[in-house]
């Protein structure tokens, strides 16, 4: 049985003012991976490349252990996507989507789709353009799920949703992975969603993967040391990842807080959140 549902290897793509540099990570089967990074860090470009929406990248993408060139249709039968700003023409209705998708996916399940519409309180016969932003997102999610995909690729699926709707959507994602054949790649800048349900975190900054590991390891091992300048000066450069100088203290990101504690005996080592990680990695200095 295959271990990784998705393998991204050495993805490289140059634009005039931006570059994806050798992006690599693996998504194991049955897991949820949170893909985090600033706006413009390369999340969407990576996802578009994985989906073949961008074609002229170098590097290799394997989905279900298959290559696009030889198995495109097969792979895409089993992927569901929610993409930022890409969807059905807005003069169509949910009913139209049902009719259309029945002619596109072998496994399209009208019953399942209708159940989602009911669960989400979405109207069948209203044009998409009349829906609120939240309802629009929910319709996209329902559409992505109704052909029983094995892999969900979601670009900012919770953006624009209020907390209640976000919670509903998170429930649906967790329902989805009750089947251990199913996996999710989920890009977002709302890290609280991920702090709960993600199994893996992949962090991209300025077109480069900074880290990709299990969330439990990450939150368990990394820590934030708060100290004064004189203490900070005692820390050797190799013992921290990044630091940020605030008004009355230094915030120092360390990779292994237990080791650090042993070595330096500092009092205040805080638990790190994903937000802290992002801020320090992006704004911090070395």
């Amino acid at each position: 049985m295959m271990k990784n549902i998705l393998e991204v290897n050495g993805l490289t793509k140059k634009y005039d003012n931006f570059e994806l540099k050798n992006v690599s990570f693996n998504l194991p089967r049955g897991m949820i991976m949170g893909f985090i990074g600033e706006n413009g860090a390369g999340k969407t470009t990576t996802i578009k490349s994985i989906l073949d929406i961008i074609k002229d990248y170098s590097g290799k993408v394997k989905i279900f252990n298959l290559d696009y060139r030889s198995h495109e249709a097969e792979i895409k039968e089993e992927i569901g996507v929610v993409l930022d700003d890409m969807f059905f023409p807005e003069i169509l209705t949910a009913q139209d989507i049902d009719n259309v998708m029945r002619g596109i996916y072998k496994n399209w399940d009208s019953n399942l789709f209708n159940n989602y519409l009911k669960d989400f309180d979405l109207p069948r016969n209203k044009q998409i353009k009349t829906l609120s932003k939240g309802m629009h997102k929910k319709l996209e999610i329902a559409t992505a799920l109704a052909h029983h995909p094995k892999l969900l690729i979601l670009d900012e699926p919770t953006s624009g949703l209020d907390p209640v709707a976000r919670s509903e959507v998170i429930d649906i994602f967790q329902d989805f992975i009750q089947n251990d054949d199913c996996s999710i790649l989920f890009s977002t800048h709302i890290t609280t969603d991920l702090e709960q349900i993600a199994d893996y975190i992949t962090f991209i900054n300025d077109g480069e993967i900074v880290l990709s590991k299990t969330k439990d390891e990450l939150l368990d091992e990394y820590g934030i040391v708060k100290c004064h300048e004189e203490e900070f000066n005692k820390i050797s450069k190799k013992d921290y990842v990044k630091y940020k100088k605030n008004k009355c203290e230094y915030e120092v990101l360390v990779e292994n807080k237990r080791e650090f504690k042993k070595k330096y005996k500092f009092e205040v080592i805080d638990k790190m959140t994903l937000d802290d990680l992002m801020v320090l990695m992006i704004k911090g200095e070395k």
Binding site: G30, D175, I177, I197, T214, D216
Partner: peptide
Amino acid sequence: IRNLAKDLRCSVITTKN
């Protein structure tokens, strides 16, 4: 593990561990 993860809103790896 998957059921518990859903009930507790945590990751599957956490419940597995």
